[in-house]
Simulated assay, not measured.
Amino acid sequence: MNQALSPERVRADVAELLGCDPAEIEPDDNLTDLGLDSVRTMVLIERWRGAGADTLEYADLAEQPELAHWTALLAGGAA
């Protein structure tokens, strides 16, 4: 597992761009419905690529925009 992309880090990064407290985001929330648009998603992708998720693509996140799915992709399955 990539320690730089822990479940806490993924949740905190998403919350930062949504302008909310990380605790407000449930694992099964649709992040698009919460206001995360494609531009913000690309910001996250670039941030996470810089932290070691070199193969992460927009489609990986866009097809299933739930925090639990993103955490599984980035933190090795820990949701």
Rank of each mutant, 00 (worst) to 15 (best):
N30R: 07
M42L: 14
I45V: 15
I45M: 07
L56R: 03
D21F: 08
P65F: 03
L61T: 01
P22H: 10
L67P: 04
A23H: 14
A51I: 00
C20Q: 15
G76K: 08
A53F: 06
E16C: 14
G76C: 07
M42N: 01
L34M: 15
D60I: 00
H69Q: 06
L61C: 03
A75G: 15
L36Y: 03
A72Q: 10
E8G: 11
W48G: 09
A79E: 13
R9E: 15
G52P: 11
P65R: 01
S6L: 13
D37S: 11
A51V: 06
T41G: 07
G77Y: 02
N30L: 02
A15N: 13
L34R: 14
D28Q: 15
E63L: 02
L5K: 08
A59T: 00
G50K: 03
E66W: 00
G19T: 09
R49Y: 03
D60W: 02
G50W: 10
D29A: 12
A53I: 10
D37K: 02
E46M: 07
L31M: 01
E8H: 14
V43G: 01
A53V: 07
A51Q: 12
E16F: 13
L56Q: 01
S38N: 10
G52D: 05
D13P: 08
D33P: 00
G50T: 06
L5N: 02
L18D: 06
D33V: 07
L74M: 04
V10Y: 07
I25P: 09
A68E: 03
T71P: 00
A78I: 05
W70K: 05
L67S: 04
A23S: 15
G19F: 10
L18R: 13
L18W: 10
P22G: 12
E24T: 15
G76W: 02
E66S: 10
D28A: 12
W48H: 06
R47Y: 01
D13Y: 09
D54Q: 13
E46Q: 04
L44N: 05
G35N: 12
L61N: 06
C20F: 07
L18M: 13
L73A: 06
Q3S: 13
E16W: 11
V43E: 15
E8D: 15
L56S: 04
R11D: 07
W70P: 02
D60N: 11
E26V: 00
A72D: 08
C20V: 15
E63S: 09
S38H: 03
R47H: 14
G19M: 13
V10A: 06
D33K: 08
G19C: 14
A12L: 12
L44E: 08
T32F: 14
A4C: 00
L31Q: 03
E57G: 02
L44Y: 05
G76S: 08
E57Q: 15
M42F: 11
L74C: 06
T41C: 12
D29M: 09
D33G: 07
L36N: 02
R47S: 14
E57M: 13
L34E: 05
W70R: 05
D21W: 06
L17E: 14
D29N: 11
T55V: 07
A23N: 12
A4D: 10
P65G: 02
L31F: 03
A68C: 02
V14M: 10
A15I: 11
V43H: 12
S38M: 08
L73D: 03
E26I: 00
T41Q: 12
